[in-house]
Design a protein around this nucleic acid. Structure first.
Lengths: 220, 220, 220, 220
DNA sequence: CATGAATGAGATTTCATTCAT
DNA sequence: TATGAATGAAATCTCATTCAT
């Protein structure tokens, strides 16, 4: 017993789990998304994520290297989601006004249904988009969207239903802004303007308001 | 052994330093604002704040109790700033369109000039406005702008330069949104849409764009 | 939802691989020797050894019990190597001076060609030779060189080419020391005395120096 | 009570200690030297060092940044010790043979009295002298020593008591080697040659042996 | 015999906060 | 009022080892 310098590490039995790497990875990613988007990167706890995913903490490091790697994976997965959702819109089939309405409402509802996307963007901007800049996969995913809006604006101008000279990037940012800000800042806003801001009917009317603002502005 | 008797411990400096409570407090508050609004509550470091203020860490606890107390003070001071700025607007003297334009640009420039306000709102919303709700001073400090906007919209409608049926709260939120989102999300946006988003001339044109959107929408 | 049914989990590969116990064991031992002798017992990583051997980590535990067992195996194999090399010397055929020269150069070149032996001794001494003492196989495996050196010294003294009263153990330790220290400490030494210490020609001249020191000292 | 998102960290009272930064730093350094030189960098435990120094673990990071910083400090302090000891030798006052004898015995006794120096060099060489190379302070401390030996050899050659053509660097390495190896490898050596290697009288005779080897070799 | 996902223990490091002066 | 050394709690991360297949 004595004389042994390097004490062996005692090990208990291991109450193992999934044995399905894809599921384990996905479970971690999902739990991490919840935790990180609601508490920020600094506020998120690796232990909480592991517990939420029902896996051993060690697995997080096995699959994602470290906390930052996990965050990057969450970032990429979340961005990939919204981009792939946008692909199903098929706006070129509709007349410009209807198409624009559809785009505006899609954006609003996407934000509404994916609060994690809002939280993640807030976190990422707090970090000056350091991680987003690191990911080359995401960088050029937005150009097709701008192309679509550009085409829409041209068609609308030709058909005299839209004003001329509208910058598609500014417009897209405005469309996003009108929904994003309302939702991302709902806690401070409802402190000032009352809790009804988050009531379902109020959210519906906010959607209509955004459509009105955008289409009202675009009138020639 | 001998010869080193004198070098026991460094001569104690008299604890003089600032001795100006007001300045110390203000210095801490300023440093805290910088640190907290740029890194979030969790990301902010008490050491960094103390160093930035050029004061001893202990002073923070002396003046503000703890980190949360300091955060609350930052929150209150920052909110007080924007409210007092809003008081100097005097919109009732102008015709509705000019007044609305002035209001929109004031909001845009306020955000532009006070990035700490943006960061603070992002942080506070991440925390579900817990601290804002806790502060009795701020809680019922409604922005006076809603009343002003209401009056403006009525005047404009009467003069047939604004459309009818516009909700002043929704409109105010939209005005804020169009500027806030652009600036608070400038890091992710410029990663995706290009760095020129932050160039001075581009910021100016964003201001014009916001005015156009709001006034375009308000046209009857 | 449909369309992704087939992609549940990756097809399980049949567990064939090596299936050659001897080769697996040898591969592990070789990789372990590299890793442990270059990083020490504490610095060596089981994962790295498994990867280096191209085998599954589990195999290490199958063949060697645990990390310490593996280390002991490395220790025994490495010691066995040098002892078997010493057997091929046949010094009794040569005249004392030539024999001594051959012995000195053999030792120097053995260290030069087997850096793993140096690293292992350093590690083992850091651990107070705990493992060496534990190994019954090595424990009483005295180096045969002492007897040979003894004989050599007697012959040399009788032929008046060596001084009298030389302790063979001290001499052997000195012969080893002159080579071992130069090589085991080459990193700190070359930091202090310049990198040329490790140049091939310099190593050759070090060999000559050691011969000169030993034979110079032995002169009557 | 509820509604507070960020739980305050409970703090016990602090059974503080020295309040003397120099002593605290020194205590850490001393404990670290013991722990690191006897277990290596990887084997050393920060907790053990803190306990050994009787300080809070946090202090280590306060004073030395991290474990590597602490190691570097140990390295520098240990090297500084031997160099400053060498300065007191005043070899140029003695005749060459006596001076050489004094140098050899000094080196031997220094190693004997400072086992931490041996352990540290072993550790540092295991790490390929990465840390030593980083420290610019240490790098050129050896040239004066070589200069002294060079002068000694010249004087001795002129007085016909030393042979000609001896390289001072090789000689110094040999002097160090003869003592260093005996002590650093005493655990494995005494396993093979018996425990009497470490007996006081045996250590004394080893010192005489080294002197004999060096002076014997240097004879013209 | 072989695989590799999973694990528990413990390592290093961070940080808000308090104490002696 | 002011200092800064010191602290406890908890965070992130590492690693030898084991289990289901």
């Amino acid at each position: 017993m004595e004389g042994s310098i390097a004490r062996k590490r005692p090990l208990r039995r291991a109450p193992h789990a999934t044995r399905d790497p894809e599921r384990t990875r996905a479970a971690i990613l999902q739990a991490a998304t919840r935790e990180i988007t609601s508490k920020g990167l600094n506020g998120a706890r690796v232990d909480t994520i592991a517990a939420g995913a029902g896996v051993n903490k060690r697995m997080i490091y096995h699959y994602f290297g470290d906390k930052e790697g996990l965050y990057l994976a969450v970032l990429e997965a979340t961005y990939a989601s919204i981009r792939s959702a946008e692909l199903g819109l098929n706006l070129s089939d509709l007349d410009p006004v209807e198409a624009m309405k559809k785009l505006v409402l899609f954006t609003w509802h996407y934000f509404l249904d994916h609060p994690e996307f809002l939280g993640l963007l807030a976190t990422e901007n707090l970090h000056h988009a350091t991680y987003l800049k690191r990911s080359k996969r995401i960088r050029h995913l937005h150009t097709p969207l701008i192309g679509i809006i550009s085409g829409l604006l041209e068609r609308g101008a030709k058909e005299k239903v839209f004003r001329r000279g509208v910058d598609p990037v500014e417009l897209y940012i405005s469309i996003a802004a009108l929904g994003f800000f309302y939702l991302s800042n709902r806690h401070t806003l409802s402190t000032v303007f009352g809790n009804e801001l988050c009531a379902p009917e109020r959210l519906k009317s906010r959607g209509r308001h955004i459509v009105e603002v955008v289409l009202g502005y675009l009138r020639p």
